[in-house]
Design a protein around this nucleic acid. Structure first.
Length: 532
DNA sequence: ATAGGGTTAG
């Protein structure tokens, strides 16, 4: 395959070479796991519930009343078996309750408890649940317990998951620690956990550490397609497409065949860097040279890229190509197209697309609705946006935080700060608590509309909930309060900020400068009055 | 869930 001409002068160009040429890889020092105290909360309040929902699934022949009795009988007479614990863990949506259930499967038994023979599956389930919920102290506690088990050795995939949880949480050191400790669980490390570590480091943007891991990967096996795909992804995110092509060539030199993910990643990188022509050519070459057909995600990437450079008609042609090639159109494709139609002032065509989705049996999902909500908000049509929010709820499609944030921003833009505030306050009731972004949008909006009193009170609320506004926004508010000599609100803002550790040097400097100026003018006034 | 796609935001 023909490589594109090299561009020079980029710092990241050395990316791939540094990966391949660098020397020595040393294991990080082992650090003991942090343990938290096991919780001892009575469990009987939620047990019957879990058991009932289980027996409902069992298509019980009994009436509801009898079913209830069954639950209670099971609770009082039959202790939970390791097998049953796994199915209960699967059903328990709340990670906190699942954690307590795991620690104490049979709380009601009065006899001294025999050691519970946990199954490997139940470890797997609870660890994944806690990891997804970012309850890392609890997860480490379970890992510690798993390490003591002598009946079996855990599978490597558990550690792969744990490493990727830490990667997603941007905790690269923790990811490293887990990787180092795998052997102490009597589990062998292969290229799989090394790949997980590489990917976790990528998510943390720790490119140098990635290079170290890659250099030492031979200790765990030969790098496979997955390894190289992660490296390609890293190079693409650095904007270093030359490096990406280098890895692409290098893997083949080492006898590793690119797969559909490799091409997807390359095409993603090219599109991300606005090299649509090259991306489209690679899509042709993967079929012609490598005999691998593009899948729906590759089409989604290309369609998004084409829409991004205004080539909507070309994007629609690709959608038709999918039909010809019998690649199933999914909601991601339609969401991208709908979003593009709004952006290019062609919203009249959206209803056609929705009709086509319906014909193809493809239901609009949350992302599709969000694209439309955003489209209406961009056009300052907040009524339509709010109507869509209600419609999706009515159709059983759960709005997410993005749905709400988009509308809150739209309302702020329209100057309807009280409605924006109402919507934010209504979010918990609608099953979607506001996040940092929700608060930041509202806070910025209130400052913009000079609703400084409201802004101050929202600031206090968000800090109370552990969310910090952007420094620029704080400074803007502080400046405005200084300008207006609003000492009362300024004082409240400083109090809130102090509580949340939200004061930066910059903010302090502003306040100090203001106070000094005030004092200074007070002083000069005093002098003036003395002189005269 | 060892690697890849779509909506927002800042």
């Amino acid at each position: 395959m023909r490589k594109p001409p090299k561009t020079i002068g980029r710092e990241e160009t050395s990316f791939a070479l540094s990966l391949i040429v660098s020397f020595g890889y040393s294991n990080g020092d082992s650090v003991p796991f942090q343990l938290s105290q096991p919780l001892t909360v009575p469990l009987r309040y939620f047990y019957p519930n879990s058991l009932c929902s289980q027996s409902m699934n069992d298509k019980s022949r009994h009436s509801t009343g009898q079913r209830k009795t069954n639950c209670i009988q099971m609770k009082t007479h039959k202790p939970i078996s390791p097998f049953r614990l796994s199915s209960l863990l699967r059903l328990q949506k709340d990670p906190k309750l699942a954690f307590q259930l795991f620690l104490n499967p049979n709380p009601s038994s009065s006899k001294p408890p025999k050691p519970f023979r946990y199954s490997l599956l139940s470890y797997d389930l609870i660890i994944s649940k806690l990891g997804r919920a970012k309850m890392f102290d609890e997860m480490e506690e379970i890992l510690h317990q798993l390490k003591q088990e002598t009946r079996f050795a855990p599978h490597e995939v558990i550690f792969c998951n744990v490493i990727s949880f830490y990667g997603r949480a941007r905790l690269p050191d923790r990811a490293f620690q887990v990787f180092d400790k795998i052997p102490s669980f009597r589990c062998k490390r292969t290229v799989k956990s090394a790949n997980s570590l590489l990917d976790a480091l990528l998510k943390c943007r720790e490119f140098e550490k990635m290079a170290e891991v890659f250099v030492g990967i031979g200790n765990y096996g030969s790098p496979d397609a997955c390894t190289f795909n992660i490296l390609i992804h890293a190079a693409c995110l650095c904007g270093d497409l030359d490096a990406a092509w280098d890895v692409f060539d290098e893997m083949q030199k080492r006898g590793v065949k690119p797969n559909v993910v490799t091409f997807g990643t390359m095409i993603y990188g090219l599109s991300l860097n606005f090299k649509l022509k090259e991306a489209l050519r690679l899509k042709e070459d993967m079929v012609r040279v490598y005999m691998i057909s593009p899948n729906a995600s590759i089409y989604a990437t290309l369609i998004k890229g084409l829409c991004g450079v205004g080539e909507l008609n070309w994007a629609f042609k690709l959608k038709e190509e999918m039909v010809t090639n019998k690649v199933k159109l999914d909601s991601a494709i339609y969401s991208t197209l709908i979003s593009a139609l709004f952006k290019h002032g062609r919203k009249e065509e959206v209803s056609d697309i929705l009709g086509e989705m319906e014909e193809n049996g493809c239901k609009p999902d949350t992302v599709t609705y969000n694209a439309m909500i955003n489209g209406h908000c961009q056009e300052n049509d907040l009524e339509s946006a709010q109507r869509l929010l209600d419609e999706m709820m009515a159709k059983g499609c759960k709005p997410d935080v993005i749905s709400f944030n988009t509308i809150i921003r739209g309302l702020c833009k329209e100057g309807k700060w009280d409605k924006a505030k109402d919507l934010l306050e209504d979010m918990p009731r609608r099953g979607c608590p506001p996040d940092v972004v929700s608060y930041r949008i509202l806070f910025d909006g209130l400052c913009e509309m000079l609703q400084l009193k409201e802004a101050t009170s929202i600031l206090d609320e968000m800090i109370f909930k552990g969310h910090v506004p952007r420094t620029e926004s704080i400074n803007k508010l502080v400046d405005r309060l200084c300008q207006g000599c609003n000492m009362e609100l300024l004082w409240m803002v400083l109090k809130s900020l102090g509580r949340g550790n939200g004061m930066t040097v910059d903010t302090w400097a502003r306040v100090v400068a203001f106070v000094c100026k005030e004092k200074l003018s007070e002083a000069s006034n005093l002098i003036d009055s003395l002189i005269s």
